[in-house]
Amino acid sequence: MMNKKKIAILGCGNIGSAIANGLVNSGLYKPSQIFVTRKSHEQLDKFSQKGFITSSNNLEAVKKSEIIIIAVTPQQLDDLLLEINDELIENKHIMLSVVTGAAINQIKSKLTKKIPVVRVMPNTAIAIQESMTCISSQEEDNNALEIAKYIFDQLGSTIVIHEELMVPATALCASGIAFFLRAIRAASQGGIEIGFHAEDALFMAS
């Protein structure tokens, strides 16, 4: 079932790497079931050593996978979609996008095939499989939404929201970590001022 569908992560930077490693650490996927792409051969070598399938060729990754995770920067998105469009196959591929600010309709407008697209917004805690991930899709893509939810449930917690809530969700889920860290820092600083050693104050505040 799910663990038989190969995944391609296109643009395996920080978030893409965290997704790849998290899925393997969760036991849901084996490295040999995940195809990762990146322009840097040096970075790809690190994945090869772990058993992942690696390439700098996005077309090859799409051909050999069913679930396509788009993890490039917003500036790279349009060129990537244009590059892989002809290799996408209806009723085979689904696309999960973690690209910041990229709306579902924006992505679909660049494709000539009817490919389900799910928008996914994890936060930095995905690196330790503790992400609070927001997910949204259009109604006709509910099956793809369930697949996305199942995948990202392995990397923390998920919540399905309407796409128009993605921007405020970013402030709450992604930026929220920064707010909490500032609160911890302020509390630990207060502890120092009342006489605790810095390490003890930080330990107690956190």
Rank of each mutant, 00 (worst) to 15 (best):
I104N: 08
I126F: 09
P116L: 04
L165M: 13
E87W: 09
V120D: 08
E139R: 01
L80A: 05
C173A: 15
T112M: 13
T73M: 14
I68Y: 01
N142S: 14
T170D: 05
I177Y: 04
E87D: 11
A171Q: 06
K149N: 10
D79N: 15
P122K: 15
E90W: 01
N142Q: 13
F180P: 00
P116C: 05
M166Q: 15
I126G: 05
I192N: 03
S131I: 10
I147K: 03
S175K: 02
Q154Y: 08
E146F: 08
G101N: 09
I69F: 10
G190V: 06
L88N: 07
I184G: 07
I70A: 05
S188N: 07
L77C: 01
I107L: 02
I94D: 02
V72P: 05
H197M: 03
I151R: 13
I89Y: 00
I94W: 05
C134N: 10
V120S: 10
V98R: 07
E193F: 00
H93V: 08
V118I: 15
A148H: 11
Y150I: 12
Q129V: 00
Y150N: 15
F152P: 14
T158W: 08
E140T: 06
E164D: 10
L81W: 06
T170L: 02
V120G: 03
I67H: 09
A71Q: 01
L165F: 09
I147W: 00
E83P: 05
K114I: 11
L111V: 11
L155V: 06
I159Y: 12
A187W: 04
I151F: 03
I184T: 10
A178Y: 02
E130R: 15
F180K: 14
R185Y: 02
N91P: 00
E83L: 07
S137F: 03
G190Y: 02
A148L: 14
A125G: 01
N85R: 06
N123A: 06
E139V: 03
I94Y: 02
S97Q: 09
F179W: 11
H197V: 01
R185S: 13
C173Y: 14
V167A: 15
N91S: 12
A103R: 10
K92S: 07
N123T: 06
L165D: 13
L96S: 11
N123C: 09
A127F: 02
C173H: 07
E139Y: 03
N91V: 00
L77I: 00
V98P: 05
T158Y: 09
K92R: 06
V98M: 06
A125E: 12
L82N: 08
I159M: 12
E164H: 13
A127H: 02
F180W: 09
L81D: 08
A198W: 04
V120L: 04
T112Y: 09
G195Q: 12
P168N: 02
P74C: 05
H197F: 06
G176N: 08
I70K: 04
